[in-house]
């Protein structure tokens, strides 16, 4: 690994000042569970590693039933998945955060890092998109709030400018009759990267689905929003047949590749299996949330 300088800023202001000055030469990092691995293998060679988690604003964690959830970009996944409000109101996000790596990895890995690393297989990203989450970005120019959907533009690429840092995520308040779920497929029980992942959100009125969001991971260059499947579900009763058809539509929306983790054919098939299973899980939760 090449030599680099570690910087521990004490505020977001310091981070953005440093980034404005050093731009691409400096990389913000949090858990280091992606970037340190990439630096060791020589893929990335930043001169400065800027530790976002030493800035207290990035560790914020607030839930308000009326306003929703705010999670600092540096909050470790272990805290996200253990949080009672997240488990109660956003169980799909808790599921996704709880799948990353192992206990040791989850104690370091952050939502900000998971998103900014821009891997098609990132587990929390489909869950965040399904929930309609937004990311708050800061630079010396100021602050902007952008949807997580569309944040990743290609593997390893995002809309983030070289002088910007993600400070927090804002997730809309829970809705009556609404619930999310996230499922992924991996060959092992932990320490694995999704061969396919599916995050869903559904809103139910009785047996009828009034809104559905389906987001696919690891089966395209970026997360894929399965709009046809979503449109098909709107207004329908979620029985086995309807859910299976939606799952087929989602599988068609996938554009997987062959690699060491899975074949195109297997991945497309997995999307259908996971979509069906996660829709059923979310629908069950949503029904319980109607009262």
């Amino acid at each position: 690994m090449h030599e680099f300088t570690y910087v521990a800023p004490s505020s977001v202001e310091e981070i953005v000042q440093f980034l404005a000055q050093h731009r691409e030469k400096a990389r913000p990092f949090c858990g280091g569970t992606d970037i340190l691995v990439q630096m060791r293998s020589g893929v990335r060679r930043p001169s400065y590693l800027l530790d976002v988690k030493t800035a207290p604003e990035t560790r914020l964690f607030e839930f308000d039933p009326a306003k929703g959830l705010r999670i600092g970009a540096a909050v470790p996944c272990a805290d996200v998945s253990a949080d009672p409000a997240v488990r109660r109101y956003y169980p799909g996000l808790a599921e996704a955060a709880n799948l990353i790596g192992s206990v040791q990895i989850r104690n370091r890995a952050s939502l900000g890092g998971n998103l900014a690393n821009a891997s098609p297989a990132a587990d929390t990203v489909p869950a965040l998109i399904a929930l309609g989450a937004k990311a708050v970005l800061r630079s010396v120019q100021g602050q902007r709030e952008v949807p997580v959907e569309g944040f990743v533009t290609a593997p390893g690429r995002t809309i983030l400018n070289a002088d910007e840092v993600i400070t927090e995520f804002v997730i809309p308040p829970p809705q009556r009759g609404g619930a999310d779920a996230y499922l992924r497929f991996v060959p092992r029980n932990e320490m694995d990267i999704a061969v396919a992942g599916v995050g869903v959100f559904v809103k139910m009125e009785g047996q009828r689905c009034v809104e559905a969001r389906i987001v696919l991971g690891a089966v395209g260059p970026t997360q894929i929003v399965a709009s046809e499947a979503m449109a098909y579900l709107r207004g329908r009763t979620l029985n086995e047949g309807v859910v299976s058809h939606a799952a087929e539509l989602a599988a068609q929306a996938a554009s997987p590749i062959d690699d060491v983790r899975g074949t195109r054919e297997f991945r497309r098939h997995l999307v259908a299996v996971l979509t069906r299973r996660s829709l059923l899980a979310a629908a069950k939760r949503a029904q319980a949330n109607q009262s």
Binding site: R188, N189, E190, M191, D192, I193, D259, V260
Partner: peptide, 16 residues
């Protein structure tokens, strides 16, 4: 060799 890491050379972990 396409999987020269322990992430993709999948040995069983305790939960397996």
């Amino acid at each position: 060799l396409m999987n020269s890491t322990l992430l993709d050379y999948r040995m069983p972990t305790c939960p397996d």
